[in-house]
Amino acid sequence: MKKFLFADLDDTLFQTIEKCAVREALEPAAYYSDGSICSFTTPAQRAVFDFMSAGMTVIPTTARSLDAYRRVDIGFTSYAILNFGGVILQPDGSIERDWQGRMHGLMTAALPGLQELAARIGDWCARTGYGGRPRLVEDEGTPFFIVVKDPDKVALNLERVEREVVLPWIAGEGRDYCVHRNGNNLAVLPRSLDKADAVAYVTERLRREHGEIVTFGMGDSRSDARFMADCDYAIVPRRTQLAKLALEAL
């Protein structure tokens, strides 16, 4: 029986140097657009990836855009899920057009809300003197979500943006959107954008191609929890947001 692992990338298979608990024998795993190193793998992560790759097919399931995904230096050979589920790549690297058409319609409908919230965050930043700014993430001509990063990489600074601007908006006219904050990333997504929906779509494809299969889900954050829960088994790296919420809490 074929086995497939849907795996988040950042903070799951690799991470920035600041998040590396062990800093010996690190190897580059992803790069910035200027060619400098963005993220690294530890020896343990490489051993786990080799172990998993030997027995199952690994399918990246990430918030990364197509450009950022292409700057990941790890060999994947099957489907890939990008932009929180907004884009699906087929095994040959081409975009799955049926899915793309569906998501383009949903995201176009959600764009006015994202623009409204981006304007509110921008006004709040100007009024308070906060240095961060909202950015609309688009890929292949489709808008997907808003992201805010703290310019000083102080993750707690984003809590105030979430509490004072984002959550009140979601509680009112923004009820069709959700917020995800982990580390130095605060993202606001339409509820119609979810990794779990893309994983379900790819899983159905895999069942048609291979018959009965076993699926595994692996991720570090609460935004990964839904697609992981839909898989047959879930894998959670330690010292991550999801580990603190689901495992360390017990």
Rank of each mutant, 00 (worst) to 15 (best):
M1E: 04
K2R: 07
K2T: 09
F6I: 12
L13R: 08
A25Q: 14
A25D: 12
E27I: 00
E27F: 04
P28Q: 04
A29S: 11
Y32Q: 04
Y32N: 05
S36L: 09
I37R: 09
C38A: 12
P43G: 13
P43L: 14
A44N: 15
F51K: 14
S53Y: 07
T57Y: 02
T57P: 04
T57M: 03
T57G: 06
V58N: 12
I59M: 10
I59P: 01
T62A: 09
A63Y: 01
R64T: 03
R70K: 10
R71G: 09
D73M: 10
D73L: 11
G75N: 14
G75K: 15
T77W: 07
S78H: 09
A80R: 05
I81C: 07
I81V: 10
I81P: 11
L82H: 07
N83H: 13
F84Q: 05
V87H: 03
L89S: 07
S94T: 11
S94F: 01
I95K: 08
D98N: 02
Q100W: 11
H104G: 12
L106E: 15
M107T: 00
T108H: 10
A109N: 13
A110R: 03
L111H: 14
Q115Y: 04
L117A: 14
L117M: 09
G129E: 08
G131P: 08
G132T: 05
R135D: 06
D139V: 02
T142E: 03
T142Q: 03
P143D: 09
F144R: 00
F145R: 00
F145I: 06
V147F: 00
V147P: 09
V148S: 05
V148I: 11
D150C: 01
D150Q: 08
V154Q: 01
V154D: 02
L156Q: 13
L156F: 00
N157L: 11
L158I: 02
E159R: 15
R163S: 12
E164F: 05
V166M: 03
V166D: 08
L167F: 01
W169M: 08
I170K: 00
A171D: 03
G172N: 02
G172E: 02
G174Q: 06
R175I: 06
R175N: 13
D176R: 07
D176F: 13
V179C: 10
H180K: 06
N185Y: 02
L186H: 05
L186Y: 04
L189E: 06
L189W: 04
R191Y: 05
S192P: 10
S192Y: 04
D197C: 08
V199M: 06
A200H: 00
A200R: 01
T203V: 12
E204L: 11
E204V: 10
R205C: 07
R207W: 00
G211V: 06
G211W: 00
F216Y: 15
F216A: 04
G219F: 01
S221V: 02
S221I: 03
C231S: 14
Y233D: 06
I235C: 07
R238N: 13
R239I: 10
T240Q: 09
T240P: 04
Q241S: 08
Q241C: 02
A243I: 07
E248S: 09
E248Y: 14
A249D: 10
A249N: 05
L250C: 15
